[in-house]
Nucleic acid binder design. Structure first.
Lengths: 242, 242
DNA sequence: AAGTGGTCTAGACCACATT
DNA sequence: ATGTGGTCTAGACCACTTT
């Protein structure tokens, strides 16, 4: 169960152990789980290490604590769906569709004033501009236009884009993605958009403008994605945290 | 600076101390702050206590760490707008517009199969059906159709709807709102929708389907809101919590 | 080699809730 | 009175980065 000689930290092993118990129903929702001291004694580890595992689970919304009472399992169905930032690839697989993409444009451009403002770089600093048609089961789903500062994305090339941009980021940029701001609009497609999406010009599209930030606060990318409205709806969760 | 006899935990005092230094510019963005051991020695507190302060700041996105290097100030001190669940009234005021509404329909109906499923009630159980045109600065912005189980919303009447439905809920339902699932689509308006929104029939709309849940897990309401795409865009934040 | 954050220990006292 | 989570200590070893 817990292997002290494993290269995996003990708190992480315990965290996974508890997650399993919750998934299997052994620790049901709204029920107490063993106390910190119980875990500490059972696995012969320090209570502080147990707390580190539990702190992570609290942060993930998997469990919650009550002073003097104990630690409880959260209602799972809520936590799972809280809006996450997913890549196109992840999203399509989740929906049971086969993702692919077709590169339309790959250029290095100089940023104009508006863009440099968004990306928090100097005007005329070089950026990658990448335009791709995203397909699901070989049918056009969306057009994705990505703007990334060359400074922030080393060694970005066409072959990288065959796969997930997120995977590239995770592998090549140590600073992790933290959050994104999105703005969503309904509008009619431009002529080029209608053609790339293979839809009639009187069919509306969903336009999503996204700015993605890293943990350091740096801007990773500014992205516009235009979705076929007949094939795509955006699903997400909101929480009310008064 | 740090008072060990204060009822305020030491880690919290240190956390506020660091926040102040950042706000005053003494710890500038992207710059190193003192190491954990420095804080520990300077204030004569345990390094674990320093870590607790720093962990909280990392969680808030105020600082970030790099193994072997140190702890840095994040670039963006702007408070992140984690997607919140707001009422129409709140949202419009935030955008600097004057909200109002015009009641189109107020009825008690029997729920059909699909609706009873969503609201988690029995088929044919009575529901309130409320349709309102929402205005901003006296111009139609959206059409809101709310479905609420009569069981869950006592004393709901037309006069309540002059104001915010959220305010009514907060005042009359002890179980607080916890979260909502939304599905967002772009589409063309129906004839009735175009007429109520005072837009031409070839102008697209943003259709948002929302199910709102209470902390107990009960469903508060199922709502369809149809927005004029030319006057409304949806803005929100997503976080990536790996 | 020196410094950093990451992990871990084996204790301790506190405020709080339950019995 | 007992058990719980919340806070805190004074050490320790590790992997990593920089000098």
């Amino acid at each position: 169960m817990i292997n002290k000689n494993s290269p995996i930290p003990i708190y992480h092993q315990l965290l996974e152990y508890i997650k399993c118990k919750i998934a299997s129903g052994e620790y049901p929702a709204d029920e107490l789980i063993p106390s910190e001291r119980e875990f500490s004694e059972k696995f012969q580890i320090s209570r502080m290490t147990v707390r580190q595992a539990l702190n992570n689970l609290v942060q993930e919304g998997i469990v919650y604590r009550q002073k003097g009472k104990g630690t409880f399992v959260s209602r799972q169905q809520v936590e799972k769906k809280i809006s996450r930032l997913n890549s196109y690839t992840e999203e399509m697989i989740e929906r049971g569709l086969k993702p692919s993409s077709r590169l339309v444009q790959f250029d290095i451009l100089n940023s104009d004033k508006a863009l440099s403002n968004i990306l928090k770089i100097k005007e005329n600093d070089p950026i990658y501009f990448i335009k791709r048609v995203r397909l699901a089961d070989s049918i056009p789903m969306s057009i994705e236009s990505i703007h990334v500062s060359c400074d922030i994305a080393p060694n970005l090339n066409q072959s990288v884009l065959e796969k997930s941009f997120f995977d590239y980021v995770n592998a090549n940029i140590p600073d992790p993605i933290q959050y994104a701001d999105q703005s969503i609009q309904a509008r009619m497609p431009s002529e080029e958009e209608a053609q790339l999406l293979e839809i009639p010009p009187n069919c509306p599209v969903l336009a999503i403008y996204r700015t993605t930030y890293l943990r350091s606060g740096k801007v990773l990318e500014y992205e516009l994605t235009v979705y076929r409205a007949d094939r795509y709806k955006l699903v997400h969760s909101l929480s009310r945290t008064d």
